[in-house]
Design a protein around this nucleic acid. Sequence first.
DNA 1: GGCACTTATTATAAGATGTAAGCGAATGGG
DNA 2: CCCATTCGCTTACATCTTATAATAAGTGCC
Lengths: 404, 404
Amino acid sequence: MPERRRWTVRDLRRDNRSVLLWSLYFDQPCSRQDLSEATGLSSASVSNVIRELIHEGIVIEAGSVDSDGGRPRVLLRINPDYGYVIGIDVGETRIRVELFDLTMTVRANADYPLDPREHGVDVVVDRVLTCVAAVLADSGVAPASILGAGVGVPGVVERGSEVLLHGQTYGWDAVPLERLLRSGTDLPLYIDNGAKTMGQAELWFGAGQGARHAVVCLIGSGVGASIIGSAAAGRGATSSGAEWGHTTIMVGGRECRCGSRGCLEAYVGAEAILDRYGLPLPGDDEESALAALIGAAATSPQAAKVLDDTALYLGVGIANLINLFNPGQIILGGWAGLLLGGHMLPAIRAAARQHALSHPFAATTIGLGRLGPDAVALGAATLPIQAFLNGTAAPSARRIARSV
Amino acid sequence: MPERRRWTVRDLRRDNRSVLLWSLYFDQPCSRQDLSEATGLSSASVSNVIRELIHEGIVIEAGSVDSDGGRPRVLLRINPDYGYVIGIDVGETRIRVELFDLTMTVRANADYPLDPREHGVDVVVDRVLTCVAAVLADSGVAPASILGAGVGVPGVVERGSEVLLHGQTYGWDAVPLERLLRSGTDLPLYIDNGAKTMGQAELWFGAGQGARHAVVCLIGSGVGASIIGSAAAGRGATSSGAEWGHTTIMVGGRECRCGSRGCLEAYVGAEAILDRYGLPLPGDDEESALAALIGAAATSPQAAKVLDDTALYLGVGIANLINLFNPGQIILGGWAGLLLGGHMLPAIRAAARQHALSHPFAATTIGLGRLGPDAVALGAATLPIQAFLNGTAAPSARRIARSV
DNA sequence: GGCACTTATTATAAGATGTAAGCGAATGGG
DNA sequence: CCCATTCGCTTACATCTTATAATAAGTGCC
């Protein structure tokens, strides 16, 4: 029995305001008339809501365009400087923080490499807070103007009475990340799985634009996936981060760092690929080592075999996603995913075709992400944007001040 | 970018009417006051909508109850005879059709066994139509009173410009089932995957009552699963039938009848289990053969080994669902699922624990379905009920007549 | 300057819910 | 037996939002 909420006249207004904001956000600049056609709202209602938004400083008029011999249409835009958002990528090997304006232009960023052997929670929290302070100082943006900060993390995000993080593969167990960060900042926080945030970035700005139903595979040192779909009759979209990396594709297979056997991650994660090869490779980090392995494949049969197997396993994993989710689009991302995909996408596609049912497979396209490996931070920043457009953003200091 | 619709004042009414119907349907009988508390609508609005529903004959007053020294509360119920629904289970080995009133009381049913070797589309369509005619005649219900017929089918259901069915494992390819049935009936048709309809039945009336997020595993001759969850901020629920049976759990493993290798169905479907055992068993159908195998396990090491392996493979499959969907509840159903689960649920649970991440696993309960193997037809009948409660039911002859 | 054309704004009406007052029906005490 | 009380439901009214239609505004062409 689905749970349904009653609606009041006020919800109607809030909702239609939100519909207008979404439409304008993804199709700016445009005129009131355009918005009326795009959303189906009457021109009177559009004018009404837009007046309110302009008064609040969220929307600004930006020039005008002739209209075949009539009154020129006034173009509307979202005010890029109405507020700012922060995207935080907590990866397994580094922390990256970026500050954007409302149109997702980067205003400042900060990096911090993490030693894989020292993945303590307190260190990570401390570094994140330092980086946030750095981008704030760097950009000159007042903290009160920040609409929120999104955080993309590896592992399972559990939303109960408080947000808990479970990163089984690197020893995080029920970490109350939000509370820990809260000790050092007042920003509204939006925490979610990194694969999911990357997926949202690709869906909004990258390879998934216009897709209704997409799956994004994040392959780095480990493996994750994000399933994004628009609920058929729903308001807004649903999405979930999935622990794809620890689904079993080979009963009784290779040991995985999660403690189980035969996990996908034990075959196609960068760490696992290099381990399967076994021989030494040039380069001091995984990224250059994997690149070297791909380079060696042209001459070394052993390296070629490892990569061929990788394509097979990855194709199997993708086929499983196709059978389970029937997505319209599969996007391969993450630094290792982009490397592997760039080199052997056809082989991956072929393996997926072999292992998926033919019809769901035919309805799916498999491609590479277009935003590069930094998409996680960008996607994390879309979380507060989403709340802002939905009108559900936590009241920040700015808003409180404004309403007095 | 999620697609969002604008809402008008009228949508508001339709939606709140629907909220009331849902609430009443699952908590009847109850008073107007109860509805007001349950839904959050003001008592005035409740009275208003209920008056309309009573006028239309959908809701009826049913006695009254004293109230601690005040005006007695009038109890409301959905009129069971306002309309009827039909649930159709198209299985791999039989067709089953049941006719229910609005409260899901069976009024008539009909069965037809299917020869596994003769699974032609035309035969199935013909038999379904015959069975529908039989239950109509048997119950004495006028066709115009049927709100709709739900059909649960094996395989992938594709909703494009018309509904297409893909049953790769038994040779159905892009079958336009709705159009074929339409040639013999005017009933509004709701076609969906059988695992999904069974899941909905368990969720509404069985083991999943009150669950927000459940996965239902249907194990018969083949294997399917249904993922049911309430979209966090959405109207109503989303669900999808998943081709869980053809996800790969063993790269390069046993051949599957879908043409691939290592599919879950090639290990835990009833057909596959019996095939893995290999030795002859008493009984002329799969059901009695599987029961015999379970009986033999007490004395035969070979039979015990086959079942132990089955528990392992099934546990792996369930673990994959847990990692991907993080459900609150997993419900095992289907005739083979109920047989196996009744005999070795602890072993299945143990295998799932070993292969799932610890936190998602801890949040999940694994149990058996409570509605028995007929739940597919019951669930199929919930499809037109759902449309009826949502107010999106196709206009039937009855309604057209009524509105004149 | 008048006219056509397009865009945006301003009444006005229709329809939805919430609030609060009022009516109806039964209990229980004096 | 009567009356205050209590609770359930209904009615009247105010508030709010959108759609419709008329009005104003701005530009180009003749």
